[in-house]
Computed example of a mutant assay.
Amino acid sequence: MMERDLFLRKYRIEQEDFDAAGVSWEELTAIADHYATIEGKLREIGKDFVDKYLYDIEKAGIHSYRYRTKAQGHLLEKIIRKKKEQPEKFAQLGVDNYWKYVTDLIGIRVFFLYREDWRHFHEYITSAFENAPEQYVKDRERDFDNDETHCYIAERPKVYRRNGDSRIYDENVIEIKSGGIYRSLHYIIKYRGYYVEIQARTLFEEGWSEVDHDIVYPYHKDDVMLRDFSRLLNRLSGMADEMSSYFRRMKVEKEFEEVLLGEYKEDKEAKLLASMRELLGKEER
């Protein structure tokens, strides 16, 4: 574990923000030490999840996937940030229960080729796991189910979409959050004693997200120029998704036309052949 001041500089955490989080460096060090003892288990759980539910990409209705466990430094940075931003919600977070509060220790990304493919995956994942509103977690400590064999969807599935995006989501089956530039579907699943976060997006959306996270988020969010360039790239990725949908629609329509024309051609040829046979029959008589 690195020294405190070096950690704060690396993750661009101001001293006043660290103080506002109300968590000691000793407790963070203890969390890091404990996390080091379970990270291997979490990686194995993630692998087991993708092998069981995502390996057959056609069945899942996705293009591809990847998974990871949360990096130790990013875990501590997130704890500091969450304790500062939402002190009441994360007040009880500590070394004995941090895995009940941090829902992305195991993170899985699934990718679609077309934005409309979300429906297939949503129906697949919500049929593979219980999706009962009464089981959604509200209090991280009180509502945590200690039964490792009970696997279920722990929060209502949600989608973040950008204003102006095509209205392809159904608010009756998924919570819709609008207003930002972030695009992604989110599922939190309780699996083998821990939470697994699934983020689902198109390949174009993933391209923008990776660039944004590498350059802007979360350490350069106040840089106006970088933020503006990221928004521009975000709009371009949205346009690329729209164009992809148009391409697929055109392909389907052309294939439908070809089927109709083929049937018409076959019918016409059959009628012509029947007429020729009738004519030949008359001549033989």
Rank of each mutant, 00 (worst) to 15 (best):
V224Y: 09
E116G: 07
L93V: 03
F229E: 09
G94E: 08
Y195D: 12
D5G: 01
F247L: 00
G73V: 00
H186D: 10
L54D: 11
S244F: 00
R140Q: 12
P133I: 06
G193L: 10
G207P: 04
G281S: 12
S245P: 00
I176V: 08
E88H: 08
D228C: 07
E263S: 03
H74D: 07
W25H: 12
F229P: 00
V23C: 10
E123H: 12
F7A: 05
R109H: 15
F256M: 00
Q135V: 04
M276W: 02
N163I: 07
H186K: 13
Y194F: 11
E88Q: 13
E88V: 10
H150P: 05
Y217L: 14
L54V: 03
I176N: 03
N234F: 04
A32G: 05
D17E: 15
E77W: 06
E253D: 00
N163G: 06
Q92V: 06
T37R: 12
D165L: 02
V23Q: 11
G180D: 15
L272Q: 15
Y98F: 15
D56H: 08
T149Y: 08
Y124P: 05
T37Q: 11
W25C: 11
Y169C: 11
I79P: 08
A21W: 12
K84C: 03
F229N: 09
S64C: 06
R109D: 15
D170M: 10
R43H: 07
A20G: 06
Y191D: 11
